[in-house]
C-alpha cells in the first residue's frame, strides 16, 4: 500500500504531471500545470526553477534539449522513469486518501 504521507509538494506533483505527455520548456510547464490544476496552481518562475533544480538533483527530471527562440534560450525538460513512477505513486496515494472520505460520504448518503 502506498503511504499516506506525501513526499511531494503540490507544485512538484503538477510539474511532473505536466511533463508526463512530452518534454516542455519553463513557460510550457507553467501553462500546462495551470491548465491541469483548473487554474489552482499558478507557478511563479522562481518557484518553478527551484522545483526543477530539486527534481533534476533527485533524478526525476532531466534536461532534454535546448533551443533558441527569438534570440532567447529555451530549455526543455523531460521526466525520467523514476519521475514517472514517483508521480504515479503520488496519484495513487491521493486517490486512496480521497477514497477514505468519499467512501464515508457514500455510506452516510445511502
Amino acid at each position: 500500500m502506498v503511504p499516506f504521507v506525501s513526499k511531494m509538494t503540490e507544485a512538484t506533483y503538477f510539474i511532473l504531471a505536466a511533463l508526463l505527455e512530452a518534454p516542455l520548456h519553463g513557460y510550457g510547464i507553467i501553462k500546462r500545470a495551470g491548465d491541469q490544476s483548473g487554474g489552482r496552481v499558478k507557478l511563479a518562475v522562481g518557484t518553478l526553477y527551484g522545483a526543477l533544480d530539486r527534481l533534476v538533483e533527485a533524478g526525476l527530471v532531466v534536461l532534454d534539449r535546448e533551443e533558441v527562440v527569438d534570440g532567447r534560450p529555451r530549455r526543455y525538460y523531460r521526466i525520467t522513469d523514476d519521475g514517472g513512477t514517483a508521480v504515479r505513486e503520488e496519484a495513487v496515494r491521493l486517490q486512496q486518501a480521497a477514497r477514505v472520505v468519499t467512501g464515508q460520504i457514500a455510506v452516510m448518503g445511502a
Binding site: G26, Y27, A44, G46, T47, V69, P73, R75
Partner: peptide
C-alpha cells in the same frame, strides 16, 4: 538567460515592473 526568457513569456506584455509574486519568488529562489 533561461529564467529571463521564461519570465518575459510569463509576464503581462504591458507591464513595466515585475509582479510582486514573481519578485518575491525570485528572491526566495535566489
Amino acid at each position: 538567460d533561461e529564467l529571463v526568457s521564461t519570465l518575459m513569456e510569463a509576464s503581462d506584455p504591458q507591464a513595466g515592473r515585475p509582479a510582486l509574486r514573481e519578485a518575491f519568488a525570485l528572491i526566495a529562489g535566489g
